[in-house]
Design a protein around this nucleic acid. Structure first.
Ligand SMILES: NC(=O)c1ccc[n+]([C@@H]2O[C@H](COP(=O)([O-])OP(=O)(O)OC[C@H]3O[C@@H](n4cnc5c(N)ncnc54)[C@H](O)[C@@H]3O)[C@@H](O)[C@H]2O)c1
Ligand SMILES: NC(=O)c1ccc[n+]([C@@H]2O[C@H](COP(=O)([O-])OP(=O)(O)OC[C@H]3O[C@@H](n4cnc5c(N)ncnc54)[C@H](O)[C@@H]3O)[C@@H](O)[C@H]2O)c1
Lengths: 231, 231
DNA sequence: AGGCATTCGTGCGCGCGTTCACAAAGTCCG
DNA sequence: CGGACTTTGTGAACGCGCGCACGAATGCCT
């Protein structure tokens, strides 16, 4: 099988959907389903069928007209494009409420993101064990990143310490950061940052709720009795 | 002061940025700064200044040319647009690893999203107390939603139970859902859903890392010694 | 073999969001 | 009071992503 390089740069929006397709394909594999059409995949992913086909076409022409896509093969192609053919160990900075929940969550390891280490600045946290992983001091960060070949760091510190955490991560050699603190991180060029801000998500929902109810109802604190339109 | 209705529908992308501006404005208020320019706000938010001005212009003309925006007043306008002039109690379904972290996180209450209740289907979880909130049985969901006027629900159950949790939430009268389970939820028309999928975020970062390293380097497992381009 | 049904791959137009650039509008200061 | 300076608000151009619609390819059945 010839190694086929992607013809074009894959759009950001497509990259964000590929993981969803991949998860669905894995579920299909578990149910022994060998083939799936763009329509079926679109239904399960909650998107347009044409969008599915266009997304997948960036990977190459891996479908069979009149039939669909071979589930296992397509899953492999998506994995290859996303760089999931091997594990990406991650290091978590901040062993608080959230950091512990993340470290204790088995789902990451299963999906190819084993927790290479958890670090904290608080001496009282250092040494405790979370889901088999011992919390180490943040000064050990460089060593963990080096020896475990870590490229991805997770920031789970309070907002005031998040920039410091990001600085230490980049200095240690990490090139991608997933940030849970509600702050905008400044990082050197070439470093990728994605943020997960739960408060922002809730505030967006709040905006929808706000629009859903009439101004009058809101003022006197009544519930909107009917269901509005718009998904 | 006349109540001014927004001239146009505010774009989705802008709504997603308003919470970021708001958080920055609140920080500025805490530092006793009364005025800020679009340039300053753009810097702190990590976006283009023109984008800031266009975003804010959807709210109305609340800036002063030659000066900037009055921090407190602008914050109020954003709050009004996002529907943050009053609290939005939320109910959390699933008192596991993540549900407990969320319920125990004080940041939500501070930002106007008090936890009205936590429910679980597991009898052994029911009755335990998390950060002052007693976990109740999921059969009590309707009552909690009714009496506490809950519009927003959070799904923190295992993937297999997420659709069931969403169904119960919508049946109870919730109209917005924040979903942490890695599944695509099917909901009736008019119900808003936002998902937070940490595995997807990591996989997107993985894709960037994949692109960062040359194919040859990846094959033999070496670290990329240099820093690539592209933020 | 041929016709038919199915499904992929994609060209194309459209609408949204981003960014530039600039006039309008205000401040500041002598 | 007037001119220089600052900053907003927005028209316009651009690019990207979405979805339609259709040709092309493949399988299946007779
Ligand atoms: N817990 C949640 O459910 C939740 C929800 C949304 C957002 N967040 C955000 O996630 C972040 C973490 O939340 P949390 O509830 O786990 O907070 P937490 O206070 O429980 O934990 C923070 C941890 O970070 C450590 N820390 C502080 N400074 C550090 C530094 N410079 N280097 C390394 N470690 C440091 C602390 O010792 C502590 O253990 C916060 O920014 C919070 O806003 C949390
Ligand atoms: N923990 C994390 O850090 C993390 C990270 C990413 C994603 N997630 C996702 O968040 C979800 C929750 O994760 P978790 O680690 O808290 O799992 P968990 O197993 O610790 O908790 C799930 C809870 O949901 C309850 N539950 C099960 N079925 C229910 C039902 N029908 N109605 C109400 N409650 C029900 C269970 O009793 C349990 O208490 C999962 O979908 C997981 O994939 C979690």
């Amino acid at each position: 099988m010839p190694i086929e390089r992607p013809r074009r740069r894959i759009p950001e929006a497509t990259v964000a959907r590929l993981p969803v397709y991949l998860r669905i394909l894995i579920e299909q594999t578990n149910e022994e389903i060998e083939s799936i059409s763009s329509d079926g995949l679109a239904e399960l992913a909650g998107v347009n069928a044409a969008k599915v086909r266009k997304d997948l076409s960036y990977l190459g022409s891996y479908g069979t007209r009149g039939v669909g896509y071979e589930v296992a093969f397509l899953a492999y192609q998506i994995r290859r494009e996303l760089g999931l053919t091997h594990d990406w160990p991650v290091v978590i900075v901040g062993a608080g409420n959230l950091g512990q929940a993340l470290a204790g969550y088995g789902g990451f390891g299963q999906r190819g993101f084993p927790v290479a280490g958890v670090v904290d600045i608080d001496p009282s946290k250092v040494g405790s064990v979370i889901a088999g992983v011992r919390v180490r001091h943040i000064d050990d960060l460089d060593q963990i990143v080096q020896t475990r070949q870590v490229n991805i760091g997770v920031v789970a510190t309070p907002p005031s310490a998040a920039q410091d955490a990001a600085d230490r991560l980049t200095r240690a050699g990490v090139t991608s950061i997933l940030n849970f603190a509600p702050v905008v991180l400044a990082v050197p060029n070439g470093i990728s940052v994605r943020k997960v801000d739960l408060a922002v998500e809730l505030q967006i929902l709040s905006c929808y709720e706000q629009r859903r109810m009439g101004v009058g109802l809101q003022a006197i604190g009544l519930r909107d009795p009917g269901r509005g339109a718009s998904a």
